[in-house]
Write a protein that binds this DNA or RNA. Structure first.
Lengths: 147, 147
DNA sequence: GCATGATTTTAGCCATGGCTAAAAAAGATT
DNA sequence: AATCTTTTTTAGCCATGGCTAAAATCATGC
């Protein structure tokens, strides 16, 4: 990898560029987990408990899908649940949920401040929140205070 | 679904909420295709041709992964390619690529205008561009002209 | 024009995130 | 307490998007 270098042509920035795509793929990995814990936290706050069925309903997904996903989240130490019972968040789960809520709130309020409708802000923020870096989030927050 | 309504409690907005998640999942479906065609278009413009290997390099992904993805894109009528040869975009492929570029450019310039670094704008825009609705994109464009 | 080295594709593995249909558990009703 | 209904889980399917290792093809030097 040092001496030959057969076809450099002009692809020198390739590695640099690939970083963005790698980040997007990594974000997608954590996205589902974050959506779940955020939703579970909301349900617990709103109704006192979170049941798998409610999660499925809000996510717009089949019940079985949620059961499977919850198993993975349990393996990751984010939630705890016994069969046929309500879902609980672990310490890590709450931390992730809080982080997601904070980020979500900023993005949604930012979109509103930018002038889009409430409906669009709600929908777009759901997709955008997972791809906003710390720096961009800070810039959005700053924009909010200035307006 | 009309007469009984057994447990409404206060989950009436569930269907509404689920729409956002459905949209995010749908966006993820088209995301890969869009990234590929956009990248292929760039390679064709920059270097005259796009080879699978270059795509793999820029995406930061194994060669075999690209080969497999290109087959799917071919089935979707976005690219055309013969084994061991360069990749071409179909009419639909070009349309999708142009749309992606336009959207990408607006999002990236918007982030810059918001005050984030060039590096961050480049990286974040890659993830955000696929989750920005027509309305939000328009709001970003408007913000750009005002500034 | 043929052997050898480089590149590209194929084969086959894995995890994820969907689904439906069947089984199991919980909860009501009598 | 036994049955019947509803809810939840399990089982098993599918497509996607990754990977590595092996096979096939291409291209070069001789």
């Amino acid at each position: 990898m040092a001496s030959t270098r057969p076809k450099p042509r002009k692809l020198s920035s390739a590695k640099l560029r690939s970083a963005a795509f790698r980040r997007v793929r990594a974000d997608h990995q954590s996205e589902l987990a974050q959506d779940y814990v955020e939703l579970i936290a909301d349900l617990i706050d709103e109704r006192g408990e979170a049941r798998g069925t409610d999660v499925a309903l809000r996510l717009g997904v089949a019940n079985a899908t949620v059961v499977k996903a919850l198993k993975r989240l349990q393996d990751q130490g984010l939630v705890s649940q016994e069969p046929y019972r309500a879902i609980f968040l672990t310490g890590d789960g709450w931390k992730l949920a809080e982080d997601g809520r904070r980020r979500h709130k900023i993005v949604e309020r930012f979109l509103l401040a930018l002038g889009v409708s409430a409906e669009t802000a709600r929908i777009d923020s759901e997709g955008i929140e997972h791809h906003v870096s710390r720096e961009t989030l800070a810039a959005m927050a700053k924009f909010l205070t200035r307006n």
